[in-house]
């Protein structure tokens, strides 16, 4: 099954990307190509195979619940594109 432009539009919204019409066309063609290649996986029987999310044999690393110094507010805000003395600033979230 090939990817439709409509699906790509939906995915771009989920990904919080705004694509122009020519960009949507190009993205649809390129991703359709890649997704078709991924279809090779569906030919393989994996019924009794446990998924492997990472190759490490470490699990549940716990740390003591101890208060430690962290970034100061000034350091945390230093790279913000828009801020005031105490907070990050964003466009209005709620309506008027």
């Amino acid at each position: 099954m090939s990817l439709s432009r409509k699906e790509i539009e939906k995915v771009s919204h989920l990904a919080r990307l705004q694509l122009s019409d020519p960009e949507l066309d190009a993205m649809t063609a390129q991703l359709a190509n890649v997704v078709e290649y991924m279809e090779t996986l569906s030919g393989l029987n994996t019924d009794d195979v446990e998924p492997l999310a990472h190759a490490s044999d470490i699990s549940n690393v716990l740390a003591d619940d101890i208060l430690k110094p962290s970034l100061s507010r000034e350091e945390a805000l230093a790279n913000a594109p828009k801020r005031d003395a105490e907070c990050y600033r964003v466009p209005a979230v709620l309506g008027d």
Partner: peptide
Amino acid sequence: SKYYLKALKVRRLIR
């Protein structure tokens, strides 16, 4: 499940 989960299973076979 068609793509991500499938890929994780194949990852185990590769390992």
